[in-house]
Simulated assay, not measured.
Amino acid sequence: MPQEDKQVTLFIAGILAWFAVLMITHVKASFPFANGVYFTGFALFLTGFLAINFITKAKQAKRLSSVFILLQLMGFGFVFYTAQSSEGLILLVIFAGQLPFFLSQKQSIAVLLLINGICLFIFLLMWDRGFSSSSVAITLNLAFQCFALAVANIAVRESESRVALEQANAELMSTRSLLEQTSRQAERLKLSRDLHDICGHQLTGLLLNLEYLSKTLPTQHQQGVNETKQIAKDLLNDIRAVVKQNKASAQLDLNAAIDSLFAHLPHVNAEFTPRLAAPLLSVHHAEVLLRICQEAVSNALRYGSEKCLSISLFKGDNILLLEVSNPFKMRAHERVGSGLQNMHERAAELGGEVTIEQENSQWKVSVRLPYKEQHYD
């Protein structure tokens, strides 16, 4: 079943469960405004549930999602306290199905155990229910909650795997784009070298022979030899011009490689500006910048608060600049890892440097590489 269909199924199941609890529970509490608290609890729970499922930022921003999770928990508390029955615990099944999207499995289990422990305490000490009936009700509902938790956890893992596969495919396609360009340029350069070394050598020998003949043949044959010699000179000049043109056009379009990266990440909003005004002459520089860009995009998708990035690529006087920035909600030490170390090492190979900046909830990776407009490869 596709990931989107699974999420829709979980949503429909949550709505049906919420409606079922509303139909089978009744207000048993006798304090003033108990009815109002009861229906307010259902309203709060449904509001938090719908917000998490329909507000995009609620899924991406941890603080906002925490607010709506707590709103549901508050709503459950109102319903459970006023209904004073185990049927109200069914709302926790819906609640449990959302926890894996925001908490780890261990954290989710701890939260459910804590809430059910509080409910058991209320059953035994506040409502004076029997231990046997209370523990059975709590255990049975906790089993359903764990089942919902497991199903949602599978959906989350599949979603993460799909995103990772999508990202790996995008990196593969962008790398392939660069390799295709590199392969074409390598073939052209090889052909140019062969043309220059083989044909150029043969034509040079031919010119030397013609030069010798022009000095040894009778005068009446001089014109034909000179004309042949001129043709050989023109042909040699043409070959040299073709070789020079092929070398001059042996460039790599890094813009196309980065475009290929995001063409296979349809759920990512990327702004790519400014772009390189002209292709690069160096395979090594293009590959290093692409690899660093891939790693920066990977970090942004893994740790960023939103799936949006801003990329700029600029070639100045003797320098190449790459910047990748994205919103984030994490502290710096949580983002440092082998990926950033790889960036530094790749840039250092070409005498460049990578700097990391954090400002106004933006995480920015900047790369500076020394570069001269010449053929490095």
Rank of each mutant, 00 (worst) to 15 (best):
I258M: 02
L281K: 12
A263R: 02
L261P: 09
S298C: 13
V297D: 07
S282M: 08
Y303P: 12
I258R: 07
L276M: 08
L276G: 00
S298M: 10
P266N: 07
L252T: 01
R275Q: 09
L280S: 04
R291H: 15
C308N: 13
V268Q: 02
N269A: 10
E271N: 13
I258D: 02
S310T: 08
L265K: 03
L276T: 01
Y303R: 01
A300N: 07
N255I: 03
L265A: 03
V268W: 05
L276I: 10
V297T: 12
A286C: 08
L252F: 11
L252W: 07
T273F: 06
E306R: 14
A278Y: 03
R275M: 07
H285C: 08
C308P: 00
G304Q: 13
E295K: 02
P274E: 08
Y303G: 06
A286R: 01
A270I: 11
H284L: 12
L309E: 01
L265T: 05
R291N: 14
S298E: 13
L301W: 10
S282H: 02
G304R: 00
A270N: 06
Q251C: 14
A263L: 10
P279L: 01
N255P: 14
K307S: 14
T273E: 15
L276N: 02
P266V: 05
Y303E: 08
R302Q: 14
S298G: 10
T273Q: 15
I258Y: 04
K307N: 09
F262M: 09
R302K: 15
L265I: 08
R275N: 01
P266S: 05
S310Q: 12
I292C: 13
A300E: 07
R275W: 08
E271C: 04
F272D: 00
H267T: 11
R275D: 11
F262Q: 02
A286G: 11
L289P: 09
S310D: 09
L301S: 14
S282E: 03
D253V: 06
A296F: 11
L289V: 12
N299V: 12
N299L: 12
A270G: 13
G304S: 11
N255G: 05
L281W: 02
G304T: 09
R275Y: 01
K307G: 05
S310P: 01
S298V: 07
E287S: 13
S282P: 11
L261Q: 04
A270E: 09
S298I: 01
E295D: 15
A296G: 10
A286P: 06
P266D: 07
Q251G: 01
S310G: 07
V288E: 03
A278N: 03
P274K: 02
L265D: 09
Y303S: 02
A278T: 13
C308Q: 15
R291D: 09
L265R: 04
A263H: 06
S310Y: 08
G304E: 14
L290S: 01
S282G: 06
N299Y: 01
S260D: 07
P266R: 03
C293R: 00
G304L: 07
